[in-house]
Design a protein around this nucleic acid. Structure first.
Length: 679
DNA sequence: CTAGGGTTAG
């Protein structure tokens, strides 16, 4: 009998079989005939066959048991792991093949570089790059654009540019890598410049290039330009797929154009989880909390599991209005279905602390097995807004014992924590360490924090000296901080200077005009006062309507100032009247200093007593059991009078009342506030 | 015929 003869090439034969059983049969024959142990190219083809039918385990078994592995076998395995997004496996195999002396080719290098990119492992990536150059792939387009992408994703755009300039005959992929790289590093003008260069070289942008431009528009808030990119795509008949549509949804949502964004979203024929998340996060970021939460439910009803990003947006929405109950249930959802990583963990820390439960936030922080810079910064900021400056400082000291380097955000949180707690010396100490030890150039925000801290402590002259020491022109935030301190401490001379500077810089925020006019009123500078009022009127600047939100039995209730539309209004008014009576008996005197209008005193008293937080507090007291703690979230700052009144109320009803205003928390208990009247 | 550039985020 003639001995069994294999064909010269096994590949055509293997390609004919698309089922596991036939491939396994050939596999068996290879083993029994001893072919397998000779380790020819047949083994690699067998590996590829198993991968073709998606059976990575069998492929790996063949691969591991082969006495010899050729590049093709390695590449087949690497492609499989790359598709399955297992970058660590890809790199392991890459290392192994170098040890075994199999020379990687262009596709090996490309995939290995891609794996490093996804791990942001610049060191390994650079080793691979060196090896690729040694193997003669320096001018390979695939390897080249992979190296570019590695640098771009690791935020090394200048390095990427150097590589880019040396690639001969750059193709559109290389150009795109540079464009999106610049966009994602926040260097939008460089991205646009690169795009123009590409056009000059006669290369037309495709869909991916346009996508990069849309992202650029989203980042700088230029919805008009985004619209024209969209138009350009339609005219040029470029395919507008889910990814592009999602970016357009994001562009409009991020910039507060929810109408446009949801119209775009509703018109999509296919949506994926990312599209949903883009819209939801846009809603959450722009304060459209109700819409965000509705969409979250709708997303599920369309059969999508909530993913990392949509959950984070949900948590952000809860944070904004103090929706503890929903925040908690999202926490439960996460624990059941996902791993608590530092990103979600940080969102939870933020949610708990913004919902008034700082200790829960700290507990989540302790639970995190790995904490990154943002986790620490968030925790420090949380202590800050709750007025626990010393805790914030001690956490910062702990942080300096880790490998993490504090950044500008760390110091911004720290300085504002000191300022909320009136820790003047500590604040100055932090500022000095930031500049001299960590070599961080203080930004406008840092200066504003320190000026605020000094000025509110009454050290107005020191604050002025600090401003004079700035190397850049002080911006509006710095002058506003100085003015506020001057207003509190009645430092009229410096205050007038600050007020003048503030007005020169043309604030776009009605709250700032209110501060300036209040200052002039207190200083009895009636001409200036009238001037400011006129500017406010002429620019159509209206006071942002104040509202407060309170959670009662797991539901949110919002109140506007003088809100009479509420079904329980009679009861609420009755409760407030009763409280006022008791408060007055205890020595409360209404403080109308902060009411702007030129009104009769009696009307002013009525106005402060109908501020939205009072209504929310009364409603909360009426509808919750004795001793229950209340959390009120307000969109503006608490006024002096409401602050005073809430102290009395907390004593009268013997409850803890937590008020979160736009800047910080006030914990009222037993007639005192945690801020110590310092805010 | 394989391989490089793309959407959301604390």
């Amino acid at each position: 009998m003639r001995p069994f003869q294999w064909p010269k090439d096994l590949k055509p034969l293997l390609l004919r079989f698309k089922d596991r059983a036939s491939i396994a049969k050939i596999h068996a024959i290879m083993i029994s005939s001893g072919t397998f142990d000779r380790g020819t190219s047949f083994n690699g083809q067998l590996v590829a066959s198993y991968i073709r039918i998606g059976d990575i385990e069998s492929a790996r078994l063949v691969f591991d048991k082969s006495p010899h592995r050729a590049v093709d076998a390695y590449n087949a395995m690497i492609i499989a792991y790359s598709r399955k997004v297992c970058p660590l496996e890809v790199i392991k195999l890459y290392k192994q093949m170098n040890l075994e002396g199999a020379r990687p080719d262009s596709s090996t290098f490309t995939l290995a570089l891609k794996a490093c990119t996804s791990l942001l492992d610049l060191d390994m990536g650079e080793k691979i790059r060196t090896n690729a150059v040694k193997c003669g792939y320096e001018h390979d387009m695939f390897v080249g654009s992979s190296v570019l992408n590695l640098y771009a994703k690791c935020g090394q755009m200048d390095e990427a540019m150097g590589v880019f300039e040396k690639i001969p005959g750059r193709d559109i992929v290389a150009w795109t890598t540079m464009i999106t790289g610049f966009v994602q590093s926040g260097r939008v003008s460089d991205a646009i410049w690169i795009y123009r260069q590409m056009q000059k070289e006669g290369i037309e942008g495709d869909g991916v290039v346009m996508l990069g431009l849309i992202q650029a528009c989203a980042n700088i808030g230029d919805t008009k330009m985004g619209l024209s990119v969209h138009g350009h795509m339609i005219r040029r008949d470029l395919r507008i797929d889910v990814v592009v549509q999602t970016s357009l949804v994001d562009l409009y949502a991020k910039n507060g154009q929810l109408e446009l964004s949801s119209r775009m979203f509703r018109n999509m024929s296919h949506r994926n989880a990312v599209s949903w998340s883009a819209l939801i996060s846009g809603c959450a970021q722009n304060g459209f909390v109700g819409n965000a939460l509705e969409l979250l439910k709708e997303m599920q009803s369309f059969g999508f599991e909530l993913d990392l990003v949509s959950l984070m947006s949900g948590l952000l929405a809860c944070s904004q209005v103090g929706f503890l109950k929903l925040g908690r249930s999202i926490h439960g959802y996460i624990m059941k279905r996902l791993d608590l990583d530092q990103v979600l963990g940080t969102a939870l820390i933020d949610m708990y602390s913004k919902c008034g439960f700082l200790s829960n936030g700290r507990a989540v922080f302790e639970l995190l097995s790995s904490k990154d810079l943002i986790s620490w910064n968030t925790m420090i900021a949380s202590y800050g807004i709750h007025g626990q400056g010393m805790e914030a400082l001690s956490l910062f000291l702990h942080m300096t014992e880790t490998d993490l380097k504090p950044d500008h955000a760390t110091f911004a949180s720290l300085l504002s924590a000191c300022s909320h707690s009136g820790l003047v010396e500590e604040g100055k100490y932090c500022f000095d360490r930031m500049v001299y030890e960590f070599n961080i150039k203080p930004s406008e925000k840092h200066y504003a924090c320190l000026v605020d801290l000094l000025a509110r402590a009454g050290r107005v002259e020191e604050a002025r000296d600090l401003i004079d020491s700035m190397t850049t022109d002080p911006g509006i935030a710095v002058w506003v901080a100085l003015l506020l301190g001057c207003h509190i401490h009645r430092k009229l001379l410096t205050g007038e200077l600050a007020a003048k500077k503030v007005l020169e810089l043309k604030p776009d925020n009605p709250g700032i005009y209110a501060l300036v006019s209040n200052f002039y009123a207190a200083a009895r500078k009636w001409d200036e006062f009238a001037g400011v009022r006129k500017v406010m009127k002429n620019t159509g600047m209206k006071k942002v309507p104040g509202y407060s939100v309170v959670e009662v039995h797991g539901k949110l209730h919002a109140f506007l100032m003088e809100d009479k539309s509420h079904p329980q209004y009679e009861q609420i008014a009755g409760m407030l009247e009763k409280l006022e009576h008791e408060m007055t008996a205890m020595g409360y005197i209404p403080n109308t200093e902060f009411v702007l209008h030129n009104l009769e005193e009696e009307v002013k008293v009525k106005m402060v007593c109908s501020h939205s937080e009072r209504l929310a507090i009364a409603f909360g007291l009426l509808n919750t059991g004795l001793g229950t703690r209340l959390l009120i979230t307000k969109n503006l700052r608490v006024c002096r009078d409401c602050h005073e009144a809430t102290k009395f109320i907390s004593k009268i009803v013997n409850r803890e009342i937590v008020v979160r205003d736009v800047k910080r928390f006030h914990h009222f208990k037993d007639g005192v506030c945690s801020c110590g009247d310092y805010w």
